[in-house]
Amino acid sequence: MQKTINGAMFRKMVIGAYNNLDANKKYIDSLNVYPVPDGDTGNNMFLTMKSAATHVNDCTTNNMDGLAESFSKGALRGARGNSGVILSQIIRGLSTELGLHNDFTTKNFADAMAVGAKMAYKAVAAPKEGTILTVIRVMAESAEAIAKKCPDFEEFFKQVLQVGEDI
């Protein structure tokens, strides 16, 4: 049972996310309809995540504060397109909260998701529902309730991702 996650584990999480996005970018491209239906969303998000993952990979320490900082900085530097900018904002919110704890629990992670969602919403003057914004908001809202019941990360992520799928 995985109750806390530390820096080394977090590094692996980021790399895993990057590989997963790489595999699915074609599918995300095909979803792209807003605001310009040019089908580059997946690629934009991939490039943003690539820069974030490279920064995390190059980070010399395994402390959470250092890792979180390079994660958000990398995403910010590499942001491309609308979806990339939203992603970088979510990551920035997530990282500011996660950087405070060296071993974070499911509850910390739920808080971090809420901060990330809030930051992403603040970046848009006229937020449109039915986009990635809705997904992160609903996931963040339910993550808090799920974290209370389940301290195990494996179960926590499974349930939160299920909520994301259900929207």
Partner: peptide, 19 residues
């Protein structure tokens, strides 16, 4: 907004408006 990549946003504004 503070804390975003200005070049990325400017690029996406141009693209969106043109379209």
């Amino acid at each position: 907004k503070y804390g975003i990549s200005i070049s990325a946003v400017a690029e996406s504004i141009k693209k969106t408006i043109k379209y």
